Amino acid sequence: MKLPSMKPGLPTMGAAVPLPVKRADTFYQSNEWRRLVVRRRLDRDYQQARARAKPNERLILDHIVERKDGGADLDPKNTQWLTHSEHQAKTARSKRARSGIS
């Protein structure tokens, strides 16, 4: 015996509200930052990061002390090469520390 199906009693909701598009900070598009990236590719830590990277993993020139935490924008000593996965983990730790969550 086939059971009859019931129509939903509540209206269905539309699609979820889309997340806003992430926009890159215009600082990272500046000529000064791009020149620093090119110069820092000549340093030994770039080669060390390449050795740590998984095949086809991007490398990111990262601020050691983040700009929003008062780190110097264009000081080469405030930058380090990280693999994409290292950068993601560091960013998550920084956000957690900034929010006060352990």
Score class of each variant (00 low, 15 high):
Y28N: 01
D45G: 04
A92G: 02
R96F: 03
R58M: 15
L59T: 00
H84K: 03
W81R: 05
Q80K: 08
V17F: 06
A97N: 14
Q29P: 01
N78D: 06
S30N: 06
R41E: 09
K90R: 04
Q47E: 15
T91N: 08
S5V: 13
D75M: 00
H63T: 03
H87W: 08
E57K: 01
P18I: 08
V38Y: 11
K68N: 12
R50D: 05
I64E: 03
G100Y: 02
R96K: 06
E57P: 04
A49Q: 03
R93Q: 15
Q47K: 15
R58V: 07
G100A: 04
K7I: 11
R40K: 14
E57Q: 02
S5K: 13
Q48E: 15
D45A: 04
R50H: 02
K7E: 10
A49W: 01
R41D: 05
Q80H: 04
R39Y: 12
R58I: 10
G70N: 10
M6C: 13
T12L: 14
A15K: 15
R34V: 07
M6Y: 13
L10W: 14
K68T: 13
T79W: 01
D43M: 06
Q47L: 15
A16Y: 10
G70Q: 12
K77N: 14
N78I: 07
M1P: 13
R34F: 02
R52A: 07
G70C: 10
N56M: 02
G14F: 12
Q47V: 15
A97I: 09
Q88K: 04
D62I: 00
V38S: 14
K68S: 14
D25P: 12
R93E: 14
P55S: 07
D69C: 03
K7C: 09
R44H: 09
R67Q: 07
R98E: 08
M1D: 12
P11Q: 07
L61N: 06
R93H: 15
E66V: 02
L59N: 00
A24T: 12
D62Y: 07
R58H: 12
K22F: 10
Q29N: 09
L82K: 10
P18Q: 05
V21G: 08
R40E: 13
L59V: 00
R23C: 08
D75H: 02
P55M: 00
D25S: 12
W81I: 06
Y46I: 12
V17P: 08
K95G: 13
D25T: 09
R98F: 07
A49L: 00
Q80M: 04
N78H: 06
A92F: 02
K68H: 07
A72D: 15
R50L: 14
V37A: 10
K22W: 09
V65L: 09
A49E: 00
S30C: 01
S94I: 14
K22L: 11
S94G: 05
W81F: 02
A72N: 13
Q48K: 13
A89G: 02
L74D: 02
H84P: 01
M6A: 14
W81Y: 05
M13A: 12
Q88A: 11
